[in-house]
Design a protein around this nucleic acid. Structure first.
Lengths: 103, 103
DNA sequence: TTGGGATATCGGGATAAGCCGATATACCTT
DNA sequence: AAGGTATATCGGCTTATCCCGATATCCCAA
């Protein structure tokens, strides 16, 4: 059920901007300090903030977040008009272990 | 100096056949049993064996091995007319650790 | 020193990824 | 209901990757 698809994950990680996004989501308060007082831990960061910081267009970022989500690296929740994305840390742990033992 | 380039590694890992090759090189005696008595541990496996098992052309395999090598995932040694490739396990360990702590 | 075998490199056609603008959808406010 | 805001999807252009056949290089044996 939760078997991770390494090939899809590696493809998702094969893009500089997507790697950056994952860094940002790792430390939201550091990279989105503009949004003082946001509770990033709970739901993550909304698409708009990520898009602003990226310098890419809204459509591209939306697509990139979908790629990361499809690979399982992030999860999202919609609240009102906003969609919040945050990392799925367990998948990173699984990937780390699989690389050490199975790749 | 030995800082690994994650983006290049992920790109190298973003191909099904290249992932297979890495599996084969992990257990040469299992996957290249045709070559009884070979000392795979020392130098690795020669390109010809890998090519035969892959079903791809010689040029493609040569290119794929070059991609894996450029990413640091394998190393090679030329002996006579043969080039032997084997895994660079330390890079896999590094990658595993980096994914756990830095990605 | 020439011929043959192993591997690397080159050129190219097919397919996928990068990234955009335009448009659609979904939700919120008034 | 209508307009505004946030996000997703679509169509398309550009660039990179996949994978091949042809050719070059490098090494060995006769």
């Amino acid at each position: 059920m939760s078997a991770i698809d390494c090939l899809e994950i590696f493809k998702a990680l094969s893009n500089e901007k997507r790697l950056e996004i994952l860094q940002w989501l790792k430390e939201p308060h550091r990279y989105f300090s503009c949004a003082e007082g946001m509770d990033f831990e709970k739901y993550g960061v909304c698409v708009g903030y990520i898009q602003q910081r990226s310098g890419l267009t809204q459509s591209t970022i939306s697509e990139y977040l979908a790629i990361l989500k499809k690979a399982g690296l992030v999860e999202s929740v919609r609240i009102g008009q906003w969609t919040y994305y945050k990392r799925n840390e367990s998948v990173f742990k699984d990937l780390s272990r699989i690389i050490k033992t199975n790749i």
